[in-house]
């Protein structure tokens, strides 16, 4: 599920990197607000825990075994914002040290697993007030949403998805999602026996409602895109009719790919390319800084 570099086209990874950077900054601020200051070692050690927990084999029959992915479990124990940050840290370490997932694709992977996946795992827990099937559904959804998003992004990048491959992958995703749900329920059960205080009861405040709303919207959007990507002609026709495509193309595409603006010569295009990268970086940096600062606090 970790998308390596080289698989996504620029019109997929650029917007996702651009979206993930400020989102992570904002979540970081939220996580800092929710915790007292033992949060930094706790979150880091919890990330290391997820790595270590992947050494534990969960037998799922036929001699095969599953492993905890952990997004949902983290959201139940640390809260969704902190869980997102821990998952982001895990993905970044995996991309850097283990070459598991790409660096440019990090935005996509963070969006799939650390943001949408974690929130999708938290939503049933929140709505079902921490009941057992809410925990199970949380595990299932967190994995399913991440996997489907990854599939959608690959499809949007033009990676061919024949029907047979698609069917097999979706079937595999569903099985691993159910396994993740079962593992999450079992681990939560074990935790309750060890020390009930580990689970954070879902708080019914405005923040959670906003998260739920944002999540529902993004899941809907993803489902829509996924359905649409199955009928690319329909999407294109719709886009042409409404003019969205050309607008989106000029907004998203131009800084990086539209080298024509500086003429045909390769030096000119090189400069344009560098400028494009610089602009992308500046936007990211400004957004990140703005969102990661508490009001009234300097850098």
């Amino acid at each position: 599920m970790h998308i390596p570099d080289g698989f996504l086209s620029a019109r997929v990874w650029v917007p996702l990197d651009l979206a993930a950077a400020p989102a992570v900054a904002w979540l970081g601020r939220r996580a800092q607000r929710d915790f007292d200051h033992h949060r930094i070692p706790l979150m880091g050690v919890m990330g290391a825990f997820i790595f270590a927990a992947q050494m534990i084999n969960f037998p799922v029959g036929n001699g095969t075994s599953g492993h905890l992915v952990g997004g949902a479990l983290l959201s139940f124990t640390l809260g969704p914002a902190a869980a997102s940050i821990v998952m982001t840290a895990i993905l970044a370490i995996q991309a850097l040290i283990f070459q598991d997932g790409g660096l440019l694709a990090l935005g996509a992977n963070v969006f799939n697993m650390a943001i949408a996946g974690v929130l999708a795992g938290y939503l049933p827990y929140l709505l079902l007030k921490g009941r057992k099937y809410g925990i199970f559904l949380g595990g299932v959804l967190s994995l399913l949403v991440s996997a489907i998003l990854a599939l959608v992004e690959l499809a949007l990048s033009g990676v061919p998805m024949p029907r047979a491959v698609l069917t097999v992958s979706v079937a595999l995703f569903v099985v691993s999602a159910v396994v993740e749900g079962a593992i999450t329920v079992a681990v939560v059960g074990a935790l309750e026996k060890i020390q009930p205080g580990f689970l954070r009861r879902p708080a019914a405040n405005g923040g959670s409602a906003r998260i739920a709303l944002a999540l529902a919207a993004s899941v809907l959007a993803c489902a829509g895109v996924f359905v649409a990507s199955q009928h690319p002609d329909g999407l294109e026709r719709f886009a042409q009719k409404t003019g969205i495509w050309s607008n989106a193309k000029s907004v998203v595409h131009s800084p990086l790919a539209d080298y024509q603006m500086a003429g045909g010569h390769w030096i000119g295009r090189s400069i344009a390319g560098l400028l494009g990268i610089g602009i992308v970086y500046l936007v990211c940096r400004v957004a990140t800084r703005a969102l990661s600062q508490r009001p009234g606090e300097g850098s």
Binding site: R29, A48, A52, A89, I97, Y281, R285
Partner: peptide, 29 residues
């Protein structure tokens, strides 16, 4: 380069305790 400091600190702790917790997990196994 402007990455969120909070995330980087979490990464630093994660990396530091990766080995320690893996050793604990394998000892338990």
């Amino acid at each position: 380069l402007g990455a969120p400091a909070f995330l980087l600190q979490v990464m630093q702790f994660l990396y530091r305790y990766l080995m320690v917790l893996r050793e604990e997990a394998s000892a338990m196994r």
